[in-house]
Amino acid sequence: MKIAQAGTIESNDALVIVSPSDKLIVEIDSIVFDKFGDAINQVIVDTLKEHQITCKVVVKDKGAYDYTIKARLITALRRAQNE
């Protein structure tokens, strides 16, 4: 695994950056952190579990919905592993 990213910092989107790590680290910077910080964390943890991957995830969120964050994370993981 190498460092990779997906997404943008446009409104309603999120930029997700993944990098190698032995333990799970999630860093969230969100304009709606107070209301949705927990929800964003949950999506990340669940998605990593589904893919059985442990790594570091940095999210810069501009109010993306859960499905957007999930899609950005999956794309970042593919880029980190394949290419």
Partner: peptide, 9 residues
Amino acid sequence: NLVGKEKRL
């Protein structure tokens, strides 16, 4: 439904 479960201030 769009935004999901939100923590109230």
